[in-house]
Amino acid sequence: MQAVVITIGDEILNGTTVDTNSAFLGKELALLGIQLREKVSISDTDHHIRGSLHRYMGHTDLIIMTGGLGPTLDDKTKQTLCSYFNTELVFNATVFKFIENRFAQRGLKMTERNRQQAFLPATCTVVPNTMGTASGMWFERDGTVLVSLPGVPYEMKHIYRSELVERFRKHFALPVIENYYIMTSGIGESWLADQIEEIETSLPLDVRLAYLPSPGIVKLRLTGRGNEQKKVAMRVSVWAQQIELRLGSHVFANENISLQEAVGRRLLALQATLSLAESCTGGNIGRLITQIPGSSAYFLGSVISYDNSVKERLLGVDPDILSTHGAVSEETVAAMLDGVLDLIGTDY
């Protein structure tokens, strides 16, 4: 099952607006077992919209278009879809009533442009938008489902989650998808790949491994596909356990969480406390730790000893260590650690 996402708008092409819609849709479709084969951004013109429709209709299972459904003259999508599907715009009383109530609740007066939002292609299935005035539209032709959605990200996301997920599940024969995450640190992507190469090359066709590196972290994602949830989950789990055993202490979590969240959970389990002594990081580690809700249960505080004089006065670092080994050294770090543990009195 494959999909194409088409984002419409000159503001995307010229860089004024960053396209976050296709990234969101790619991630969400993958969770349903729908592979995003291509994503394109096009100008909001009849010529380019029709060209994209001719290219993909009948050649992919699903097309999702976002953008061009507003009330202004530069929004061409609805009219172009009418032309392409050989239909006309008709007044939808239900949609109009919703728009009318929406304006009344806000004490605003409707204009004729707002009323035009209630005119929709006669042959489409209306996909309600309870977060705005531009309805979504569902078309089918030549074995392809085309869904047109507003380009405003929060409206598009709401329609997708509240309406489309369930419609896709009912309309398409979607596989069962099981994702298993292995979070690693202290190991580079290349070295990690060497360590598990034997396991990776032995994976069956219905289990895939993805490397998702970020600074300091390499996230591994095992994805299994099949028809029965329990069987797919068990198959993925068996392979995940082999990888975790091979990587040992480099694995800090087997779910998609950050290192700071994993640290927090471990401290809570141990009923232990944490303090920090930072220098070059300038408090960034403390910022990450305190981003986690409930971190006050285990994090007591930190010393940002950026200057050597602070290391000496607050953390008790011996000046001889600093002069002999330098501020950026294992010896200085060890002395800072001893100092902050004495100063704040935490377990770690």
Rank of each mutant, 00 (worst) to 15 (best):
S135Q: 13
G136E: 09
G136F: 13
G136L: 07
M137D: 10
M137F: 04
F139P: 10
F139G: 09
E140H: 15
E140Q: 15
R141D: 14
G143Y: 12
V145I: 15
V145C: 15
V145H: 14
L146K: 07
L146I: 15
V147H: 06
V147F: 06
S148T: 05
P150D: 00
G151Y: 01
Y154A: 05
M156P: 09
H158L: 11
I159E: 02
I159L: 12
Y160Q: 00
R161C: 08
R161M: 07
S162P: 05
E163C: 11
E163M: 10
E163Y: 03
L164V: 06
E166W: 10
E166Q: 13
E166K: 13
E166V: 09
E166I: 06
R167L: 09
R167M: 09
F168E: 02
F168D: 00
F168A: 01
R169Q: 02
H171D: 13
H171C: 11
F172N: 05
F172R: 02
A173R: 14
L174K: 10
L174D: 10
P175S: 13
V176I: 13
V176P: 04
V176D: 12
I177T: 04
I177E: 02
I177M: 02
E178F: 14
E178A: 05
E178G: 03
N179G: 04
Y180T: 13
Y180I: 06
Y180R: 15
Y181P: 12
Y181N: 05
Y181L: 09
